[in-house]
Simulated scan of single mutants.
Amino acid sequence: MSVKTYSKKKIGGVLLSANFKVAEFACHDGSDTVLISEELVALLQKIRDHFGKPVTINSAYRTATWNAKQGGAPKSQHLLGMAADISIAGVSPLTVAQYAEFLQPGAGGIGVYKSFTHVDVRSARTRWDSRSGTEKAVAGWLGYTEVSELDKAVDKLVSAGVIDSPDRWKSGNWTKRAVELLIIKMAAKV
């Protein structure tokens, strides 16, 4: 995927994906030019779709002057239009980082701060924790796992009152008699 150049004044309201507009990626210094990585937009859309909540882009593309004023790294991915500092209401920065790690385990940059998560789409892999105010390298942000189809089905049957003991059903260790009783209970609900 590539980085494209946009004009905030001319097409700032144009959607780049289902939920993100050009203007959201613009530098906060008021400049018109906006660099945006298509891969970054795709990553942010996946994060937004997963959490089902708006993703606030606190900072994306930065001019060199603005980056320096913000104390950004001299070779920041923000300068290339390949990074975004994001937050999601009601979702911790660590939780966002864990999902981003799931999406790009072998590449990209992911940093966790007190109030936001940094994500970028560089080809190399780098991770850091800045929640203490001092950046330290970390191995990664593990912890997210996809919910299996079985777990979703068990949760649905629990909420419908068909079964109890969801942990037993999610374990996959069932006797023939337990399955028979489940089928009888399900038939009674139909």
Rank of each mutant, 00 (worst) to 15 (best):
G140I: 02
A60W: 09
E180H: 11
S123Q: 07
S115E: 15
A42E: 12
E146Q: 09
E180T: 06
A153Y: 13
N19T: 08
H50T: 07
A73Q: 06
V34N: 02
V190N: 03
Y61S: 05
E180K: 12
A68N: 08
L182I: 01
T56S: 06
S148W: 01
K4M: 11
V162G: 04
H78K: 05
K69E: 14
L44A: 03
P166I: 02
V190A: 02
E24I: 09
V91M: 04
T5D: 00
K156S: 03
S87A: 07
G133Q: 13
L94I: 13
T65P: 06
W174Y: 10
V22C: 01
T5N: 00
S7P: 00
E146T: 05
D49H: 02
K136Q: 14
N173V: 02
H28T: 07
V121I: 07
L43M: 04
D120C: 02
F51L: 08
I86V: 10
L43E: 08
S148C: 08
A139R: 08
E38T: 07
V162W: 15
L15I: 11
S130Q: 15
S17P: 08
L35P: 08
K176H: 07
D85G: 04
L16H: 00
R131V: 07
A137I: 12
Q98E: 11
S17C: 10
K69L: 14
N67S: 11
A107M: 15
R168Y: 13
A83H: 14
A23R: 10
V3H: 06
D164N: 09
K10R: 14
P93N: 02
E146S: 10
I11P: 09
